[in-house]
Design a protein around this nucleic acid. Structure first.
Lengths: 112, 112
DNA sequence: CCCATAAAGTTTTGTTTTGGAACTTATTAC
DNA sequence: GTAATAAGTTCCAAAACAAAACTTTATGGG
């Protein structure tokens, strides 16, 4: 079975993961919770490639987790803000933050 | 940057995701929380291929989230049970379950 | 003994996704 | 008119994934 077929799974956890359960996606949400909203901010903060970032943002917008917002008319610039639906995943990230602090110590320094 | 380099990120969320933030992994934990422990149970329940399942289980054991346990001496059979570290992610899955129920309605029937 | 079944993987082959880097477009500031 | 900025897009090679068959070890039935 392909991962992309999870969206109609009987299990609500699986359906949730069909939106946020792949590489990088939850890191975009982390940045949103930290107040970031711009493409360049996500790219730099997360370390993911622009290629993947663009694809993930598109999907998060399609799924109603983020909203694409025109923040500058000329030149035309868009950024991404959390919807209420997106906000409601924040507690899950909070748990992952605490879990990481407790169980995943940093072994050596990294840049990003 | 590669996803596999997240494990030493400054951000605890990123470090957590370096263990559970890829395709399928959290679905294995869901099955564990539902009481499943055997390779065949995970394979059937989640719909992932045996190939990927084997790789994910190995990593979860390496990271101390699951424990590989001999449950039959002859023939030698192993299953996988949650450690305390693994148990402590359960609240995150609970939030994802509620979120899926609320925000991700099933559009058509699926088997798995 | 011989064959089928069971469980936990491993291997193989082909397709899809990801990573890295360069390129595009529109507009402002110098 | 030239460089800088921001938000992408495009290209190619490398890595991950999907599907299916195969392996190993042992049990139970005829």
């Amino acid at each position: 079975m392909k991962w992309s077929e999870l969206s109609d799974n009987w299990c609500p956890v699986a359906r949730t993961l069909s939106v946020v359960g792949d590489r990088w996606t939850l890191l975009i949400l982390r940045d949103c919770y930290l107040g970031k909203s711009k493409f360049e901010e996500f790219a730099e903060s997360s370390g993911m490639t622009r290629h993947i970032l663009a694809e993930r943002l598109k999907r998060l917008v399609e799924e109603g987790v983020l909203e694409r917002r025109l923040y500058s008319a000329a030149p035309k610039r868009y950024d991404y803000v959390l919807t209420e639906k997106g906000e409601e995943l924040r507690p899950a990230l909070r748990i992952m933050k605490d879990w990481g602090k407790k169980h995943m110590p940093v072994r050596r320094e990294a840049k990003a």
